[in-house]
């Protein structure tokens, strides 16, 4: 390697200067419009006082906060909060434990919330079979889009590798549950016979 071949990383300056402003402006619409950091809305990071439109020092408190779960890193239930899907049943008890006992810094907090999610999902699936609108893995996974030739999927799948495990993840629990029921039924039948 001659001295002329030594890469920039080993020298004071980059060997290849960037294209000129004129060249970049000719090629790229708006090049350099925000070159000055003063034109960048999030520079500097902290901008006090921000003109937010708020006309209160502390917001009115939304009614109904009693019993609402909250992170123990909060001093109280925030003055405004979502009211969608309140805690219920076993999944609710697991989630309430996660919030009441563990800070966000503890892995147990998040593991319990994930466990609550899975209990919620399985409980909801089972309950749905007692309704007029049971869960339907065909319509609810949207998998029909795979078959709508001439429709949305006409150009096919562009991300084959990424999706290899998805059918296993989606169908796996259903197959496992079915296999478990068959095995259980056989065991019961065997016990009754014997």
């Amino acid at each position: 390697m001659t001295e002329q071949d030594i890469p920039s990383a080993y020298l004071r300056d980059k060997r290849t200067p960037p294209p000129s402003r004129e060249e970049l402006r000719a090629r790229i619409p708006g090049w350099g419009a925000d070159l000055d950091p003063a034109d960048r809305p999030s520079s500097p990071k902290l901008q006090y006082p921000a003109d937010s439109g708020a006309h209160w020092d502390f917001p009115d408190r939304q009614p109904g906060s009693a019993g609402r779960e909250h992170s123990i890193e909060h001093a109280f239930v925030t003055p405004v909060f979502g009211t969608a899907q309140p805690l219920h049943g076993l999944s609710g008890a697991i989630r309430r434990l996660a919030y009441a006992r563990f800070s966000e810094g503890r892995l147990a907090h998040w593991v319990l919330l994930v466990l609550g999610d899975r209990v919620d999902a399985w409980g909801s699936h089972l309950r749905s079979f007692g309704t007029l609108h049971p869960d339907d893995p065909i319509t609810e996974t949207g998998v029909r889009a795979e078959l709508t030739a001439g429709g949305t999927a006409r150009r096919g799948r562009s991300d084959r590798r990424h999706q290899v495990l998805d059918p296993v993840l989606v169908a796996g629990p259903w197959v496992a549950a079915g296999a478990g029921m068959v095995l259980g039924a056989r065991r019961v039948a065997r016990a009754l016979r014997g």
Partner: peptide, 28 residues
Amino acid sequence: FCGSCWYCARGLYSNCHNVNPNATAVGG
């Protein structure tokens, strides 16, 4: 976001402290 908490007052609207009781590490 509320527009008035410590974070919103400094323009960090995505880090609002008055709207998400479930976590402090993320806003609403």
